[in-house]
């Protein structure tokens, strides 16, 4: 039987660590202590510098002898994605890279990069919540201090009331070379997108359970505990715009889904939008231009680039930024649904 092979997984790419060599944790011992050791090594460099005139007057204190880090827990890991019954070749590796839960600038939309798994709906939703309500991300993840993280998700029941579900995972990740194979941060030593994706996979049973498409609205619900709803872009255009404008003003997360990947409009590199793919809607804007008002929609591809590298080269898009802006008319031409949360 011919399999459908429909969803968009991110283009495999070589990840170049962005970390400054001077700040790279030195000589990390392979093993479970990597996370804590990495954080300790990073913290001096990430602390804000104070001018000499603001230096404290009190005599310097001697650092107390640090207690040894607690033993690291090793938890069962969710199974990787199966394609046509064959498991992905990515083996789990411990966090010997010294990656920390958050990088230098906390939770940012720009952190999220989808990996080689068909869960664009999840990556787009993570970025949407990160951009509008980052505390929903930080509040959902508890660092247990032993190399594990407990993530709180919400289920909405039949009556619409929410129930919290706690999922604990460690930081072992399926790796492709020296980078996580699935969701990762654009900051090479930041973990939160990988941890949230791993916990979501653990919750649903495996990476395979989330790697065959899904609903961005469900993920936003799981993170915020608020109802998601979808709207077709083919319905009442004024009502849809009003709703998108309200969501932008109220800082509510939004995602959008493109349509049939076989449609010619998704094969045009100039359009720079791919079919059967979920995007983060960063917001809408009404821009005055003389007597007219232009309606604009700002979007982000969860691949962390807008175009596949060949397409970017074909249209001379050297920067290939993940964030881009479309007119509302173009947005409605290229996207079929908008997912609202809250």
């Amino acid at each position: 039987m011919q399999t459908l092979q429909t969803k968009q997984a991110a283009e495999p790419q070589k990840v170049t660590p962005k970390v400054d060599v001077a700040r790279k944790p030195a000589a990390l011992t392979p093993g479970a202590q990597g996370f804590e050791a990495g954080r300790a090594a990073l913290s001096p460099a990430s602390a804000p510098l104070k001018p000499a005139s603001m230096a404290p007057q009190a005599p310097a204190k001697t650092d107390p002898v640090k207690a040894p880090p607690p033993p690291q827990r090793d938890l069962p890991d969710p199974a990787v994605v199966k394609k046509d019954g064959v498991a992905d070749p990515y083996a789990y590796q411990k966090n010997t890279r010294g990656a920390a839960l958050y990088g230098t600038n906390g939770v940012q939309v720009s952190d999220v990069r989808q990996g080689a798994i068909g869960d664009c709906f999840l990556a787009a939703a993570l970025a949407a919540v990160a951009g509008t309500n980052p505390s929903a991300i930080t509040g959902a993840i508890k660092d247990n201090g032993d190399g594990t993280y407990t993530v709180r998700f919400y289920n909405l029941d039949w009556s619409g009331s929410k129930k919290a579900e706690s999922i604990t995972v460690d930081a072992d990740l399926p790796m492709n070379g020296d980078a996580p194979a699935y969701a990762k941060s654009t900051e090479s030593l930041e973990l939160w997108p990988s941890i949230l994706e791993k916990a979501y996979a653990q919750w649903k049973g495996s990476y395979d359970a989330i790697g065959h498409g899904g609903n961005a609205g469900d993920v936003m619900e799981a993170l915020t505990g608020e109802r998601s709803r979808s709207k077709s872009t083919g319905g009442d255009t004024d009502a849809l715009w009003t709703r998108m404008k309200e969501a932008t003003e109220q800082k509510k997360p939004m995602c959008a889904g493109s349509g049939d990947k076989d449609d010619a409009k998704y094969k045009d590199p100039k359009a720079g939008v791919y079919g059967w793919h979920a995007y983060t809607v960063l917001g809408v804007e009404e821009k005055k231009n003389g007597d007219t008002t232009e309606k604009l929609v700002k979007l982000r591809n969860p691949w962390a680039v807008r175009r596949r590298s060949a397409d970017a080269a074909a249209v001379g898009d050297a920067e290939n930024k993940a964030e881009f802006t479309l007119t509302y008319a173009e947005f409605r031409r290229l996207y079929d649904d908008v997912y609202f949360n809250g």
């Binding site: 979808s230 077709s232 872009t233 349509g259 079929d336 649904d337």
Partner: peptide
């Protein structure tokens, strides 16, 4: 139309009945 569900119902509290219809060529994410 090839651009979403032929019929979508996303508002609470409705009672919708469909009878004697043939649905074909609908293409949507879900």
């Amino acid at each position: 139309t090839g651009r979403g569900s032929i019929l979508g119902l996303h508002e609470d509290g409705l009672d919708v009945r469909l009878e004697g219809l043939t649905f074909t060529g609908g293409v949507a994410r879900q």
